Computed example of a mutant assay.
Amino acid sequence: MIYPVFSMVLLTLVVGIIAFFTRVNSVKARKVNPKAYKLMDAESFPESVIKTTRCFNNQFEVPVLFYVGCLFYVALNVSSVVGLYFAWAFVLLRAMHAYIHITYNHLLHRIIVFWLAVFMVLGLWITLMLNMA
């Protein structure tokens, strides 16, 4: 389980770096006054800043369920190939979600990938519970 978790951490860091450079570039291009970042005055932000910021924030929502589930697999020494497949599927879907969100941001595509990832976390947890019985 450690490799999918590490991959999610890397994904989060990559999205964070993209969000950071998007913000820096918005200031350099004089699209955003640097003071706007003090209180995150979103009304003055270009779409690229809003998308990358929201995508980064989103990495700390549903993925928390993934991290906790994986931690239980490791802490309880549960070995499950099915659980591992759910974990990797979640990471892949979250990477797809981030890509969609940051690039073309098609809402239907994003929602489908988002909910598929949620179901992977559910599968991860159900598999954990079944392995505990």
Rank of each mutant, 00 (worst) to 15 (best):
M1P: 13
I2D: 10
P4R: 04
P4T: 08
V5F: 07
S7I: 02
S7Y: 03
S7F: 08
M8S: 06
M8G: 02
M8N: 10
V9H: 01
V9R: 00
L10Y: 13
L11E: 08
V14G: 08
V15N: 00
G16K: 08
I17S: 13
I18H: 06
A19Y: 00
F21N: 11
F21R: 06
V24E: 10
S26I: 03
K28I: 15
R30F: 04
K31M: 09
V32E: 04
N33S: 12
K38N: 10
K38G: 05
L39T: 15
D41T: 09
S44M: 00
P46A: 02
E47H: 07
E47T: 15
E47G: 11
S48Q: 08
S48N: 10
K51R: 13
T52E: 02
T52P: 04
R54F: 12
N58I: 04
Q59T: 12
V62M: 15
V62N: 12
P63K: 05
L65K: 07
G69Y: 05
Y73E: 02
V74R: 08
L76K: 14
V78M: 07
V81T: 12
V82F: 08
V82A: 07
L84A: 02
Y85T: 11
Y85N: 14
F86D: 02
A87E: 02
F90Y: 15
F90R: 01
V91W: 05
L92R: 05
M96Q: 11
I100H: 01
I100K: 01
I100V: 12
I102A: 07
T103D: 06
T103M: 09
Y104N: 11
N105E: 07
N105S: 12
L108W: 08
L108F: 09
H109Y: 09
H109A: 10
H109F: 00
R110C: 02
V113P: 00
V113I: 14
W115M: 07
W115K: 04
L116G: 07
F119Q: 10
F119T: 14
F119C: 14
M120F: 02
V121S: 10
V121K: 04
L122A: 14
W125I: 14
L128I: 11
M129L: 15
L130E: 10
N131K: 11
M132H: 06
